[in-house]
Design a protein around this nucleic acid. Structure first.
Lengths: 342, 342
DNA sequence: CTGTTAGCGCATTCAT
DNA sequence: ATGAATGCGCTAACAG
């Protein structure tokens, strides 16, 4: 017993069992060429000492790690949902999952995912899922699949949802309810999904023969913090909208809260519709009407895709698009007659 | 350019910059003793090549990694909530987060967390959060905090919620509504939280002077799959309960679904109350009445605790207990008069 | 069958 | 100020 460090290494086991390190390694990895008696003896020592090989050391040496990585900027409702789907896809594949998160303090710097990716891919992981990456020309030897990526075209395999169609649906729903002044809380301008949702908003307006009013657009950046100011601005303007389409649920929920603070009631004075259908959206008061993009399914599909690419490195990168769907809850209604007269 | 492997290593940078590996390492880590001119040149090459040091290699060599680990058996609603809280606690601490998940296929083997822990703690991570571990006598040099652990007493720092009190509250709520035949879907018998919730159930019955009927208890094991059979059994028995307290939300939601398949309506024919308040519980039809244990807060508190222990290794392990609270939604009501007459 | 020898990518003495 | 050498824990040749 001389593990000065506290950590039990393969060396400790070897010494205790009176064999070489290589032999212990063979036993641990179930390699052939070990006498039955040696095998059992080493196994016993391993059991006794509670030895477990270090993931780090093992990864460094061998190409295969049986671990797939998921890189996220932060763990928030969207990525958390995605993780659930990924975990479901991993189940009974023998793979393990490592989620690497910068802890939220990376969102600013463009290219965080590239840095993180090169830190883990190919050494720690056999392949990696990139969640909402801002760049997609990542240099990597191991397979990479991007979920909800920044750019439209990419050499990477990608999974995204029908952002444009969903946004059109959301806006048309508000129009159908009778709204004529419809505001838009935009997402992060650097994200393709955000741009598509704005395009959908405009397109639906166009289709309905309504004029697009730039004063009704504010940028919320997909986060609560970034949304609050702009949303307040919008609602306190001279002619506030009677309805708001927020580019994602988080900003929609923030908008509802802001509306309350400025004395507006949702949905009586203001209708709000979101995009994503994160679980939290059903918890709000009132429950949020939104566009469902089955985030879990995206995680599931992306992970399956990644596994395919790991199995066959020469697979052509495919681009999958998942459907979106309107989920009507309680945050929208026809505008009050008072609003109509304005 | 001879990165035969695809991965850009510190060696590639050194070669390109015409310096030794040691010098590049100094630059990367901001060590002193590098000429300004060398520094800039190396920095440029790093930029140019897009070099990023391998987390794995770095971890192997140095003690400090600036990464904290979270070990979970699977990523499901409970652990996902916890992760959100942990991510919030990590924010702006400079630490990064690595979540290690077995992908669900580990739940069976007791002690999975011990194996996983020794794989990462002390090498990959500076400290680790153990989520719902079944054993708590883990040997580890680096700090460990257990969340919702199996055993009551532990040498580890722990964070849990008022399981007993919450269960009493849940059961008393059903009693107050007028229920007399109250079933219980138990959790995993090896988990302390599950045992406490069962104890709370019995205690509330006792307090109300009601007799405990073993026929009204079934084991659901905290999962949807494990719950369905036992729940069906309970509901199809000769004298089904008029209300069910499920040990967690997942099994409560499963119970609601089972009730529907056997032709019972919730809450008209059957009241169901859960425990946890995962986001999904508000999404069900009807929305689930449950006991909130602020899972995110547990993740947050546990992470702060872990950081404290990393900062001061000699800190005495503390045990925190977080409050629980009844959340009334739509899955419970007074028993129908018909049920009363039984 | 088993031990010896080389690294994997990197940080850290110890020289220079 | 910089480079050569050493080893973290482990796996994979290559010898015996």
């Amino acid at each position: 017993m001389k593990e000065a460090n506290g950590r039990i290494t393969i060396g400790d086991v070897a010494e205790r069992a009176g064999v070489s390190i290589a032999t212990v390694s063979r036993v641990v990895n179930g390699r052939y060429g070990v006498a039955q008696s040696t095998y059992t003896r080493v196994q016993a020592v391993i059991e006794d000492l509670g030895y477990e090989s270090s993931l780090v050391a093992r990864s460094l040496r061998s190409r295969r790690t049986n671990v797939i990585g998921i890189i996220v900027a932060d763990i928030e409702p969207f990525s958390a949902e995605l993780l659930k789907g990924a975990a479901r896809a991993i189940r009974s594949t023998g793979y393990e999952l490592v989620v690497y998160s910068g802890g939220g303090h990376v969102g600013d710097q463009v290219g965080w995912e590239r840095r993180y990716l090169s830190r883990v891919n190919g050494t720690l992981t056999d392949g990696t899922l990139l969640v909402t990456p801002t760049v997609v020309d990542v240099p990597s030897n191991a397979p990479v699949v991007a979920v909800d990526p920044h750019a439209g075209v990419s050499s990477l395999a990608t999974v995204e949802s029908q952002n444009l169609e969903g946004a059109v649906t959301a806006t048309e729903y508000l129009i159908r309810l009778g709204h004529r002044r419809i505001g838009f809380i935009a997402g992060r301008p650097d994200l393709e999904s955000a741009r598509l949702r704005e395009r959908g908003y405009r397109q639906a307006l166009d289709n309905a023969g309504m004029v697009f009013d730039p004063d009704l657009i504010r940028v919320g950046g997909y986060t609560r913090e970034a949304t609050e100011g702009p949303a307040r601005e919008l609602l306190e303007s001279a002619e506030p909208p009677t309805a708001i389409f927020a580019a994602n649920d988080v900003s929609a929920l923030a908008t509802i809260d802001v509306a309350r603070t400025v004395g507006m009631s949702v949905p009586d004075d203001l209708s709000v519709i979101g995009f994503d259908n994160i679980p939290e959206s059903a918890l709000s008061d009132p429950p949020l009407t939104t566009i469902d993009q089955s985030i879990q399914e995206m995680g599931y599909v992306a992970t399956r895709l990644l596994l395919d690419h790991i199995a066959d490195p020469f697979l052509e990168p495919v681009h999958k698009t998942l459907p979106t769907e309107l989920v009507v809850r309680g945050s929208c209604r026809a505008p009050s007659s008072e609003s109509f007269t304005i």
